[in-house]
Design a protein around this nucleic acid. Structure first.
Lengths: 188, 188
DNA sequence: ATGACTATACCATCCGGTCGGTTAAGTTCA
DNA sequence: TGAACTTAACCGACCGGATGGTATAGTCAT
């Protein structure tokens, strides 16, 4: 195997590059995520980045893929035999990532402005999630509304839109939990 | 060449410029909204656009302002003495603009990636809306969840995320309406 | 003529992507 | 062993064009 000769131990450059991209997005804003800035942050050159990701589009796709994977992993850590598992998973996932600055989602959004297909993997994932959510409940509209509210929470955080305060937000999450519980009762 | 340029009421090119920006965003995608493309679409030159809006930031700010104004106007056309008027307004507004391609919101999002303050007017407006929504109900969490679901609907449309189909969407809107009605009953 | 407004030409910068080189590690073969 | 060669990983100068913005010279109604 090939070890890095004069740098910190740690694996693949691709990982480091994605990590760097996230760092840059968080620290300097989504608009500053350029191949050069990512390269600088990752401790290599533009050519090095482009060796690992042949285009910026590929880099951003890799980023999105990593996000989706991380999300899936969080998901799988949740108890399996719950009702409305998927919906619950989405809610708890967002609660758990509280405080994590996801400015990188913004970078992907920005890129999606000119490259709409970049979001395709996300769309595919969500399509599956919606199917699962609907199959897990008898009350489709209510489940969908919960899902939409959770999506609303995500974008609220992403765009730093007003949220009515931490206290209300906490109560909203609690209420969503009981809403999901009630989805189950209706099914009985 | 420009027979209609001065025949507009007030002869103001600013309106035409914003209109052109929206057209370009819709037709070619958010990423293609540049000063030049807008100028071309508006039937004038780059200089002309920059005379009316001294910078692209200003142009986008004008765009956002126009959107907020339009939104407010739609709002004011709704009956005044309803319970949860603000919430209802948000819902009906989104229903009414069904089918309208809002790719321009995307342009603003894209711009916000590098210019986060661009969204400040939106944030201010939303802050007021949330205050109003909360003051119009006794059940703050439920109202907030409805508001979040509506926001979720907006972003779903904006990013062309999967929505479970037109039929479900219709039922979701109906359910949201009854949710808002129930907000009122709880207050009695 | 004046002042609001518009067009042309141009500039500086940034950014994605290319490309020929370079370094270091392995492989082959005598 | 060691010289010749191959390959993976990376470097960094450079190109091209897109873009925001400026400078300046008009045009047109009043």
């Amino acid at each position: 195997m090939h070890e890095r000769s004069h740098s910190e131990a740690g694996g693949n450059a691709s990982r480091r590059i994605l990590e760097a991209a996230r760092t840059v997005a968080m620290r300097e804003g989504a608009g500053k995520v350029t191949i050069e800035s990512v390269a600088r942050e990752a401790g290599l050159s533009k050519g090095g980045v482009l060796y690992n990701y042949p285009s910026k589009k590929a880099l951003l796709a890799g980023l999105l893929d990593q996000m989706l994977t991380a999300h899936r992993e969080l998901f799988e850590m949740l108890p399996e035999n719950q009702s409305s598992r998927t919906l619950r998973g989405h809610l708890e996932t967002i609660v758990q990532t509280e405080g994590v600055d996801d400015d990188l989602s913004m970078a992907i959004l920005a890129a999606a402005a000119s490259d709409p297909q970049l979001l395709d993997p996300l769309r595919k994932e969500l399509t599956g999630d919606i199917e699962r959510i609907l199959s897990e409940t008898q009350d489709a509209p209510a489940a969908m509304i919960a899902a939409l509210a959770i999506q609303g929470l995500r974008f609220q955080r992403l765009l730093k839109l007003p949220d009515g305060g931490a206290d209300l937000k906490r109560r909203v999450v609690e209420r969503l939990r009981t809403m999901i519980d009630e989805l189950e009762e209706k099914a009985l």
